Amino acid sequence: MNTLPQQLAAYAAYHRDWRNIATHFVGIPAIVLSSASLLSRPAWPVAGLPLSPAVLLAALLALYYLRLDRRFGLLMTLLLGLVLLAAAGMAALPDGEWLWLSVGGFVLGWVFQLVGHVWEGRKPAFVDDISGLAIGPLFIVFELLVLLGACRQLARQVKALHTPPAGQR
């Protein structure tokens, strides 16, 4: 498994246009939330808590993020927990509303993603490496933190890894 800077740099190579990154700030959360909602049904009570495919997938993602980096892993685990809470609320809605919100959010999220990649002129990262589906949410959290002035050293590492040499630009 590659390091966090390597994973982010590989993903960043597909996301250089600011418009593409901006669409991901909408598209990725919509896809993550709607997917979690769709996977929140069915849910089985285990030790008094609902266990669903969404919970199992979130646990696997949390382990993946924690293995990449402890600080980002903890932050992503917290965010996944919030997504699961929101998704459980959506899954508790009547069938029609739940499907409308979940499928609609999923489709709308992918529309945003695809428009961004049209602007970018590049296919989505997951087409070449399926791990891009897991790195996408981490990438937008990283980009948000960079915009807020955090993670400067990591941002420099990522930029150095995904900036082509002068003769190849």
Score class of each variant (00 low, 15 high):
residue 49 L to A: 12
residue 127 V to L: 15
residue 120 E to C: 10
residue 125 A to R: 08
residue 133 L to A: 04
residue 113 Q to E: 15
residue 64 Y to N: 02
residue 63 L to Q: 09
residue 99 L to D: 01
residue 117 H to M: 13
residue 130 I to D: 09
residue 71 R to E: 02
residue 77 T to L: 11
residue 96 G to F: 06
residue 73 G to V: 03
residue 108 L to A: 15
residue 64 Y to T: 01
residue 53 P to Q: 00
residue 119 W to C: 07
residue 92 A to G: 15
residue 97 E to N: 11
residue 71 R to P: 02
residue 124 P to T: 00
residue 93 L to V: 07
residue 134 A to R: 06
residue 94 P to H: 06
residue 112 F to L: 13
residue 111 V to Q: 03
residue 83 V to N: 03
residue 93 L to Y: 12
residue 120 E to K: 12
residue 56 L to M: 07
residue 57 L to S: 04
residue 90 M to R: 03
residue 49 L to D: 06
residue 103 V to H: 00
residue 57 L to F: 13
residue 73 G to N: 08
residue 133 L to P: 03
residue 132 G to V: 03
residue 53 P to T: 01
residue 69 D to H: 15
residue 73 G to E: 11
residue 90 M to S: 04
residue 110 W to A: 02
residue 123 K to I: 03
residue 60 L to E: 07
residue 61 L to I: 08
residue 128 D to E: 15
residue 92 A to K: 12
residue 112 F to Y: 11
residue 127 V to Y: 11
residue 63 L to I: 10
residue 71 R to Q: 12
residue 50 P to R: 00
residue 93 L to K: 06
residue 129 D to A: 04
residue 91 A to R: 02
residue 60 L to C: 15
residue 100 W to Y: 07
residue 105 G to P: 06
residue 121 G to Q: 14
residue 109 G to V: 06
residue 49 L to H: 12
residue 79 L to Y: 06
residue 131 S to F: 05
residue 103 V to L: 14
residue 57 L to H: 01
residue 99 L to F: 13
residue 126 F to L: 10
residue 83 V to G: 00
residue 73 G to D: 10
residue 126 F to D: 03
residue 53 P to C: 03
residue 52 S to H: 06
residue 58 A to N: 09
residue 61 L to T: 02
residue 121 G to T: 11
residue 93 L to A: 13
residue 87 A to P: 01
residue 49 L to R: 11
residue 57 L to V: 14
residue 107 V to P: 13
residue 89 G to R: 03
residue 48 G to Y: 01
residue 100 W to S: 14
residue 123 K to W: 03
residue 93 L to M: 15
residue 116 G to Y: 04
residue 50 P to V: 02
residue 130 I to P: 06
residue 99 L to N: 03
residue 54 A to I: 06
residue 57 L to C: 08
residue 125 A to K: 02
residue 68 L to F: 10
residue 95 D to F: 08
residue 95 D to A: 14
residue 115 V to Q: 09
residue 98 W to I: 04
residue 85 L to E: 08
residue 52 S to W: 05
residue 56 L to F: 04
residue 77 T to K: 03
residue 117 H to Q: 07
residue 63 L to F: 10
residue 81 G to R: 06
residue 96 G to P: 05
residue 90 M to Q: 01
residue 114 L to M: 15
residue 101 L to H: 09
residue 122 R to E: 10
residue 107 V to Q: 10
residue 96 G to M: 09
residue 132 G to Q: 05
residue 68 L to S: 01
residue 94 P to W: 07
residue 60 L to Y: 10
residue 62 A to C: 13
residue 126 F to I: 08
residue 79 L to I: 13
